[in-house]
């Protein structure tokens, strides 16, 4: 697999130096507060991530009334579980069925539903994913190990506005009697982007 050097290789040291210079300048001028920077970073490193989304999905699988609310107004439903905020103000949940497989991309930048998935992985932001997801979604899915039959629709959602999409994966077979927590363990980040499926 070719190494994608665009996204996250070790930086040349001048990048770190440039950031340090900018941070010093902006701190002294009053444009940033180092404590606020740490608070934001800590939020995305330790508090907000795909476990949030997995809890939402597991609840939708076990609670039909919640699922209806989620499909009707995802931001409000996710807020019931304490997941809300920036880049999740207008969440939309799209449901996988036996007729439709949904998949999310942002071709223009890297829009992503932060409160339920955290910050996007590098591959989601990569030029390869952004360019290919809309024109050859099935080839992309195959790279991720997902094979969708030709007679089932692949529906790609390009997040061009401020609506943020989360995929509700199909409940895997063989999960009768699973608790909500056990079901949440089956929900991968990729299954909520649509480049994966939930598996028991």
């Amino acid at each position: 697999m070719p190494h994608d050097s665009h996204d996250h290789t070790d930086p040349p040291s001048d990048l770190a130096l440039r950031v340090k210079a900018l941070e010093t300048a902006l701190t002294r001028k009053g444009y940033v507060d180092p404590d606020a920077i740490d608070a934001v970073v800590d939020t995305f490193e330790t508090k907000v991530g795909p476990r949030n989304g997995a809890a939402v999905i597991a609840k939708a699988w076990t609670d039909p009334a919640f699922k209806r609310r989620l499909l009707d107004d995802a931001s409000a439903a996710c807020a019931e579980l304490g997941f809300s905020g920036q880049q999740g103000e207008q969440l939309k949940v799209v449901e996988n069925t036996d007729a439709v497989h949904n998949m999310v991309v942002c071709t223009l930048c890297s829009c992503y539903p932060w409160p339920v998935l955290g910050l996007p992985p590098s591959w989601y932001k990569s030029h390869a994913y952004r360019s290919r997801a809309v024109i050859e979604p099935r080839a992309v899915l195959q790279e991720f190990g997902v094979d969708i039959p030709n007679n089932k629709e692949v529906r790609v959602w390009d997040s061009t506005a401020e609506l943020r999409y989360l995929v509700l994966p199909e409940l895997p077979a063989g999960t009768d009697g699973f608790t909500e927590d056990a079901l949440a363990e089956l929900v991968s980040r990729d299954s909520m982007i649509g480049t994966g499926v939930a598996q028991a």
């Binding site: 697999m1 070719p2 190494h3 994608d4 996204d7 996250h8 070790d10 930086p11 990048l15 770190a16 950031v19 340090k20 900018l22 941070e23 902006l26 940033v32 606020a36 920077i37 740490d38 934001v40 970073v41 995305f44 490193e45 991530g49 955290g118 910050l119 992985p121 590098s122 591959w123 990569s126 030029h127 390869a128 994913y129 360019s131 290919r132 992309v140 790279e143 991720f144």
Partner: peptide
């Protein structure tokens, strides 16, 4: 742009400078 390169167990940030620029 080729294949989609993925990283197992990818951290949220890969370097301190990424943390800083995101926070700034």
């Amino acid at each position: 742009f080729g294949e989609i390169s993925r990283e197992e167990n990818e951290p949220v940030f890969h370097a301190e400078w990424e943390r800083k620029i995101f926070g700034m």
